[in-house]
């Protein structure tokens, strides 16, 4: 038995922020705008989207799920599990009850995976694969709502400069072939200090102060420049090693794998691409179009590739993510 991605739907929030708008509105406010790490983290971004004040996790997830189901021509009542991920929920206790209602997923169980940041999508894929292969569920929606730009990250932080918001939903079902050939998930709790989440007294927010009450969470540091060198070290020494070991275990290399999709194909991922033996053409990404959208980058990139009919049956796709924690989640997915 295999596992198929039947469809991927997306929703771009209302506020389109080009580099010009960003430079005019935010850069003058940031002491670190010219910081080498800021330039490095945001290199390659041309535009991003921000959720408007009235756009919530629930509303964005509902739009993405509706788009996903429409593309698959599957009624909402067929879905028996919703796996949801976000950066900062609308409610402290989470949003799945509201999403189930607003998306009319009347027959679905649901849970929200938290504290996995950018690695979340692959962890959810792995979970969907486990549920489908064990026969526990048959039609699973994975919903990713990234709102780190307007809610999670302080604009004064390194990644805040390169962050965007977006929502994506994927429908997984059984198929004759396909699914993970191999996958890994490991958490390195010893590096949890790198992403510091203490409240800040003064922050630069994506939205004016009149929305401060609504965006209660937008006062937390996401990543401070002093940890960037350590993060680069982990990228080079820990994550790359895991990917190479996994490829070796699967007896595959860059020549035998058709596509590489990394969470954010910025400068760090360029080093990976070369190390793993992939050409630029085989490295798919949407960093330029939507910036760093945490757990949504990989699903969004896959959606764009599906829209362009890039994937053929049997294609192998190397998926690489690393998120705050530090969580590293990887896999080789056969289309």
């Amino acid at each position: 038995m295999g596992i198929k991605i039947i469809s991927i739907g997306g929703y771009k929030p209302k506020v389109h922020v080009t580099n010009e708008i960003w430079s005019e509105k935010f850069a003058p406010l940031l002491e670190i705008a010219g910081n080498k790490f800021t330039r490095h983290a945001s290199k390659g971004v041309c535009e991003r989207y921000y959720a408007a004040p009235e756009e919530t996790v629930v509303s964005m997830a509902t739009e993405a799920i509706a788009d996903c189901l429409k593309k698959a021509d599957v009624p909402a009542e067929k879905i028996d599990l919703l796996i949801h991920l976000t950066n900062i929920p609308d409610e402290l206790s989470g949003d799945i009850s509201e999403i189930l209602e607003s998306a009319n997923l009347s027959n679905a169980f649901a849970h929200e995976i938290y504290d996995v940041a950018c690695a979340g999508a692959i962890i959810a894929f792995q979970q969907a694969a486990a549920f489908l292969s064990s026969g526990t569920y048959e039609n699973i929606i994975v919903s990713c709502v990234s709102n780190v730009a307007t809610r999670g990250g302080n604009m004064g932080d390194v990644f805040g400069c390169a962050a965007g918001d977006i929502a994506v939903a994927m429908l997984f079902s059984k198929g004759e072939t396909g699914g993970f050939l191999i996958s890994e998930h490991k958490t390195f709790g010893q590096y949890s200090h790198i992403f510091e989440f203490g409240p800040v007294k003064e922050g630069v927010m994506a939205w004016p102060l009149e929305h401060k009450d609504k965006y209660w969470a937008n006062q937390f540091h996401f990543l401070r420049p002093q940890y960037m060198e350590e993060l680069y070290g982990i990228t080079r020494n820990v994550i790359s090693k895991m990917v190479l070991e996994m490829m070796d275990k699967a007896n595959l290399n860059g020549e035998k794998i058709e596509w590489l999709i990394t969470h954010q194909p910025g400068e760090m991922a360029k080093d990976w691409r070369e190390l793993f033996g992939f050409t630029e053409e085989k490295h798919l990404g949407t960093f330029k179009e939507i910036a760093n959208c945490a757990m949504s980058n990989i699903p969004y990139t896959m959606m764009r590739a599906m829209d362009e009919n890039k994937f053929s049956p049997g294609d192998k796709i190397l998926l690489v993510t690393a998120g705050r924690g530090i969580h590293v989640a990887l896999g080789i997915w056969e289309w």
């Binding site: 950066n87 995976i113 504290d115 705050r324």
Partner: peptide, 23 residues
Amino acid sequence: LGDVTQIQDKVKATNAASFQLKD
């Protein structure tokens, strides 16, 4: 934004993956 990685670190579950559930 969650406690799971700190819990994992303190309990020295060095061979584990982890995640937290909300709602």
